[in-house]
Simulated scan of single mutants.
Amino acid sequence: MAKKDTEIYCRCIALGMTPAQALSEAGYKTDKPDSVRRQHDNLQKRAPIQNRIKELKQYFDENPHLAKPIIEPDDTKPAVQKQLSAKEYLLQTLNDVGQEPKLRLQAAMALLPYEEAKIAPKGKKEDAKDVAKTATTTGKFATMDYQADFFGVMN
């Protein structure tokens, strides 16, 4: 094997890892399932890779004490996180006490449209209805119910 990443992939497959785990350990991008499937299929089609996987499986069967993961987990390597939406990222930044106050304030301002609803402006028709309704309660155009209150007549 000439390339280090394909050798790591072959060892991981020989050890029984899933294709996604093997590709991830070998340094391939595994963010999309279609990409993982396509990369795995392309690697499995190559005869030298198939032969190397068979050799490694046979070697690990003969030497079971050597059949352990090639790459030890690294504590310095961050764990894979799910993709955050913009709102989730801003909330996380806002709630992180360790962040700079200026950055937290900017996150709060960016979150404002998500949290507080903007009052929609009234249209011409709605405004005209409100003016007509106000006119029926006051002045000389008031309806009989309101005029009776105006003159002090009780029903």
Score class of each variant (00 low, 15 high):
Val131His: 14
Lys82Thr: 07
Cys10Ala: 07
His65Pro: 00
Asp31Glu: 09
Thr93Phe: 06
Leu90Phe: 01
Gly123Cys: 08
Ser35Ile: 07
Val131Ile: 15
Val97Tyr: 12
Glu62Asn: 04
Ala2Leu: 08
Arg46Glu: 11
Thr138Gln: 15
Cys12His: 00
Pro121Val: 15
Pro64His: 00
Arg52Thr: 04
Leu43Tyr: 02
Asn95Ile: 06
Gln106Ser: 10
Thr138Ser: 14
Ala132Glu: 14
Arg37Glu: 13
Asp149Pro: 00
Thr138Trp: 12
Asp130Phe: 14
Lys3Arg: 12
Glu62His: 01
Leu66Pro: 00
Asp34Thr: 13
Ala117Glu: 09
Lys82Tyr: 04
Pro121Glu: 14
His65Phe: 08
Gln92Lys: 08
Arg46Pro: 01
Thr137Leu: 15
Ala110Val: 02
Gly139Tyr: 03
Lys68Asp: 04
Asn95Arg: 10
Glu55Gly: 08
Lys87Trp: 03
Ile8Ala: 01
Gln44Cys: 13
Ala135Gln: 14
Ala79His: 06
Ala135Pro: 00
Asp41Met: 10
Pro69Met: 02
Ala135Asp: 13
Arg46Lys: 14
Asp74Lys: 01
Asn95Phe: 09
Leu84Ala: 05
Ile70Pro: 00
Glu115Gly: 07
Asp149Tyr: 12
Leu94Ala: 03
Leu23Arg: 05
Leu94Cys: 00
Met1Ser: 09
Gln21Asn: 08
Asn51Gly: 07
Leu103Trp: 05
Tyr59Lys: 03
Lys54Asp: 10
Leu56Trp: 04
Tyr114Trp: 11
Asp96Thr: 02
Arg104Gly: 06
Lys124Val: 14
Leu103Val: 10
